[in-house]
Amino acid sequence: MEVAGTTITGNESWTPTSYVFVSGRSITIPDMYVCDHEVTRGEFKELMGTDPSTASAYDKDGNKLTGDAVLNNPVNYVNWYAAIAYCNKLSLKENLTPCYSVSGITDWENLAYSSIPTSSNSTWNALTYDKEADGYRLPTEAEWEWLARGGENYTYAGSNTVDDVAWYTTNTKDTGSREVKTKQANGYGLYDMSGNVYEWCYDWYDTVSSSTADTGASSGSYRVRRGGSWYNGGSDCQVSYRRYYYPYSRYSFYGFRVVRSAN
């Protein structure tokens, strides 16, 4: 779906307090096409040829799923590198220009999932991002928070009550992921921005200041992940809560969603 962008001047006040939209930081959020759900196991498998997920899958009523019934749950156990590869492959499939370039990779369409690094890789870490490309990409951290807030002033993405919008440790009992789009959407019609699986963002992680670029820090050791998960507490599901980890790391509660610029 399309979500209108905005210009954030750095003079606004935010409820809850933002650690990304800070005083003096001017950011332009573009109009975006946004997937209303986290990339599912089925979507990932169709494009990448495999479903790497390790989390058990359940429906909204807590019934364990097996076989093809798991494919509507969010893909998990994917690292940041795999999310980047998925974005480029999906762009090419839809005849769009990929946003990301990695030195030495010239044929993203035929890149095997097994070729994606699972340990720190300096070449992938040094990828370049073409902001003018029309292909799919990960949201920047600022874009992610803008989308999660949904034009509202709620603590979580769509409500002040975490159970309305999020699958998290209390209502999953740490058992596994839940089907996408089974909780309430936020004001932009986006589901699971709070909970289910953490979502990778583009940015390197660092403390955000007025001089931080709209795409985040220029370098670092960790990439940003946002939104909480089925394995984390309610505080992690807050729209303002920041987390990070190594881009090569894979866990059963790490996933992602895709966006692309609309202008």
Rank of each mutant, 00 (worst) to 15 (best):
C99H: 02
S18K: 10
D236F: 02
K60E: 09
L111F: 13
S194K: 10
K45I: 00
R242K: 12
Y136D: 12
Y205C: 01
Y244R: 15
S56E: 08
Y198F: 01
G228W: 03
R225K: 15
V78T: 02
K64G: 03
K89V: 00
T118M: 13
E199Y: 00
T172V: 03
C35V: 01
T170P: 01
S23E: 12
Y129M: 09
V70R: 14
T128D: 13
S229N: 06
L90E: 06
Y244H: 14
S211T: 05
N196A: 04
R250Q: 09
S26F: 01
T170L: 12
C35D: 10
Y254E: 15
P30W: 14
N186A: 07
G24A: 05
R257A: 06
V78R: 02
D163M: 02
W108R: 09
V197Q: 10
R225N: 13
T7Y: 14
S53E: 08
P30I: 02
R250F: 06
M193H: 11
V224H: 07
P117G: 11
Y248V: 01
T161S: 14
T6P: 06
A157C: 10
R257K: 15
T54S: 15
V165C: 10
G195H: 13
F253M: 08
Y129W: 09
A142T: 01
E2V: 07
R243M: 07
A157M: 05
K93I: 00
D203K: 09
T97V: 02
W80V: 00
H37I: 06
S240A: 13
P98S: 11
R178E: 01
Y244M: 13
T172M: 08
V3C: 05
Y113T: 00
D130G: 09
G195Y: 13
E109A: 11
D107W: 14
D236A: 09
Y136E: 11
S252R: 09
K89C: 02
E143K: 08
M48F: 07
K181W: 02
T50R: 06
G176Y: 03
P74Q: 12
D206K: 15
A57G: 03
S219F: 04
K45F: 01
F44R: 08
Y86E: 04
V22H: 13
E179L: 10
V75I: 06
